[in-house]
């Protein structure tokens, strides 16, 4: 947005350029100082702007948790659903409104633990969704319990001596479930993250983007990693861009190297498209697609 369009002011300066897409009246948001979630939200807003999408073209669905609060801060049709159910809710939206872009924006605990089954099956069926998962390796809002993403030896409230469970590697999970587009960045990779969001917004099918972000208050503090700023510096020094990374390289250990990049980019017909094609072929004229022209 140019200054000319930005008529609002805050104090004696123009309001933030993303105020067309974000609810600045609700700022300051609830996220802690040095939390990474806000960066991801800003990058999504920038990607929507770059893709030329208006707030009316998109919906954002969140579940529960710190990241789940995103739905309340965006100025588009947004839904704050129950724990783990962001994906099934958004699947309903995607099937009934194929003319819009549907984004699921939630955290690791919400998407791949409580909502883990929804995640793998939406990927398997290639539902038309862009799923953004902010992974901070813990259940932050509920007090720092062990999450399915917590690396081995990292401490959590429910793992005071460190975790001994093997965590999920989210890109591997999405790839094996069949996702069309899989990428991972950290909250430091602001430009690449924005470009990936923009590219994925213009794709079809199940697209999954994991963003590794600092939870300053809980994960970093409990594990004596300093603050969110220290974690951002850690990402700067320890992330490696590798688009053709192998499954083993994608695994994240406690404070090990983080391999980032775009790992999968393929095209399969989305669920609705496959349904229309298949039933149209079998039933011929008897088949009436759900909508004129059929869902995308």
């Amino acid at each position: 947005m140019t200054v000319a369009e930005n008529k609002k002011t805050i104090g004696n300066i123009p309001e933030h350029p993303k105020s067309l897409l974000l609810r600045m009246d609700r700022m300051p948001h609830i996220w802690c100082s040095r939390c990474g979630i806000g960066i991801v939200v800003g990058c999504l807003a920038a990607a929507l702007e770059k893709a030329g999408l208006s707030p009316d073209d998109i919906t954002i669905t969140s579940g529960i948790g710190c990241t789940g609060r995103v739905a309340g801060y965006v100025k588009v049709d947004s839904f704050h659903t129950t724990h783990g159910r962001a994906i099934p809710f958004a699947v309903g939206l995607a099937l009934s409104r194929p003319d819009l872009k549907h984004v699921v924006f939630s955290g690791d605990g919400d998407l791949v633990s409580i909502g883990g089954n929804h995640f793998i099956h939406a990927a398997r069926r290639n539902q038309n969704l862009l799923v953004i998962c902010v992974n901070n390796f813990t259940y932050a809002m509920t007090g720092g319990q062990l999450a399915p993403t917590t690396p081995v030896t990292a401490r959590a409230t429910t793992a005071p001596y460190g975790s001994f469970e093997n965590p999920f590697c989210l890109p591997n999970l999405a790839i094996s479930a069949g996702a069309d587009y899989v990428a991972r960045w950290t909250s430091l990779h602001i430009r690449r993250m924005t470009d990936t969001f923009e590219e994925a917004l213009n794709r079809e099918g199940f697209r999954f983007i994991e963003i590794i972000a600092p939870c300053s208050t809980i994960y970093a503090r409990r594990n004596k990693l300093g603050t969110g700023l220290d974690l951002m510096k850690y990402y700067y020094e320890n992330s490696e861009i590798k688009h053709d990374a192998t499954a083993e390289e994608l695994e994240i250990g406690f404070q090990t190297k983080i391999v980032v990049g775009k790992f999968v980019d393929k095209e399969r017909p989305s669920y609705a498209r496959a349904m229309n094609r298949h039933l149209g072929k079998i039933l011929g004229k008897k088949y009436i697609p759900p909508e004129v022209g059929g869902p995308q």
């Binding site: 933030h16 806000g38 800003g42 990058c43 602001i190």
Partner: peptide, 9 residues
């Protein structure tokens, strides 16, 4: 960069 990296807008 500062705009994009600021978690608080």
């Amino acid at each position: 960069l500062c705009e994009r990296i600021c978690p608080e807008f």
